[in-house]
């Protein structure tokens, strides 16, 4: 068992109280009458299955019964953040990639500095 931080209850609660509800941030086409079959099909049936960062909808089913979002890593299962409905995630695939590049660059500069000293 592990704990999940509910952004509405504002505390860590047992995983047993929660249910996952699939991919987050899915927008219904604004005008369903005029969208193409492909757009409508995408909206209804197609979901991302990324290896890495995934934004998911969860519900605190036994608790405040509010829906909220979880950013989760699909390889490590690590929960990177939870945030309320209507908010934008601070951890995204792009932000993680940017940080990785920045970290690589800083180690590269420190290595080259060591070479100069040698």
């Amino acid at each position: 068992m592990f704990h999940i931080y509910c952004p509405y209850c504002e505390e860590w609660r047992e995983e047993e109280e929660f249910h996952p509800k699939g991919q987050a941030h899915i927008q219904r086409p604004i005008d369903p009458e005029s969208c193409s079959d492909e757009e409508w099909g995408d909206y209804l049936f197609f979901r991302d299955n990324p290896r890495g960062i995934h934004h998911e909808l969860w519900v605190h089913a036994v608790g405040c019964r509010k829906f909220f979002n979880i950013t989760r890593h699909t390889q490590s299962y690590e929960i990177l953040e939870t945030y309320r409905m209507g908010e934008t995630p601070s951890v995204t695939a792009e932000s993680v990639k940017r940080e990785a590049i920045a970290a690589a660059a800083s180690t590269a500069t420190s290595e080259s500095a060591e070479e100069v000293r040698a």
Partner: peptide
């Protein structure tokens, strides 16, 4: 005291 939760 003064706290209440819905839980399992």
């Amino acid at each position: 005291p003064g706290k209440g939760v819905t839980t399992v």
